[in-house]
Lab assay of single mutants.
Amino acid sequence: NRLGIIYEIQGMKAVVLTSEGEFLIIRRRKDMKVGQQVSFENEDIYNV
Score class of each variant (00 low, 15 high):
N1S: 10
N1Q: 11
N1C: 14
N1E: 11
N1V: 13
R2G: 07
L3H: 09
L3K: 10
L3Y: 14
L3R: 11
L3C: 06
G4E: 01
G4P: 01
G4V: 02
I5T: 07
I5L: 09
I5W: 12
I6Y: 00
I6Q: 00
I6S: 00
Y7W: 14
Y7N: 05
Y7G: 02
Y7L: 14
E8G: 13
E8W: 15
Q10I: 13
Q10D: 11
Q10A: 07
G11V: 06
G11W: 10
G11F: 09
G11H: 07
G11E: 12
M12P: 14
M12F: 14
M12R: 13
M12L: 04
K13R: 09
K13C: 14
K13S: 07
A14N: 01
A14Q: 01
A14L: 06
A14K: 00
A14W: 06
A14C: 10
A14D: 00
V15H: 06
V15Q: 05
V15K: 13
V15P: 00
V16E: 00
V16Q: 00
V16I: 08
V16L: 04
V16T: 02
L17S: 04
L17V: 08
T18A: 04
T18M: 03
T18N: 03
T18Y: 02
S19M: 14
S19R: 14
E20L: 08
E20Q: 10
E20M: 08
E20V: 08
G21Q: 04
E22L: 13
E22A: 14
E22N: 10
E22K: 11
F23M: 13
F23I: 11
F23S: 05
L24W: 09
L24H: 03
I25Q: 07
I25H: 07
I25K: 07
I26Y: 00
R27K: 08
R27D: 02
R27P: 03
R28M: 14
R28S: 14
R28F: 15
R29G: 07
R29N: 10
R29W: 09
R29D: 07
K30C: 15
K30F: 10
D31M: 14
M32C: 04
M32P: 00
M32K: 01
K33T: 08
K33W: 07
K33L: 07
K33M: 08
V34D: 02
G35V: 00
G35S: 03
G35T: 02
G35I: 00
Q36E: 07
Q36D: 07
Q36Y: 10
Q37D: 05
Q37W: 12
Q37R: 10
Q37V: 13
Q37G: 06
V38I: 06
V38Y: 11
V38T: 05
V38Q: 02
S39V: 12
F40W: 11
F40Y: 08
E41Q: 11
E41A: 13
E41T: 13
E41I: 11
E41Y: 09
E41M: 13
N42S: 11
N42I: 12
N42R: 08
N42K: 08
N42M: 12
E43W: 04
E43D: 12
E43G: 05
E43T: 04
D44E: 07
I45E: 06
I45W: 07
I45T: 02
I45H: 03
I45F: 03
Y46H: 08
Y46A: 10
Y46F: 13
Y46L: 15
Y46D: 11
V48M: 09
V48H: 12
V48I: 11
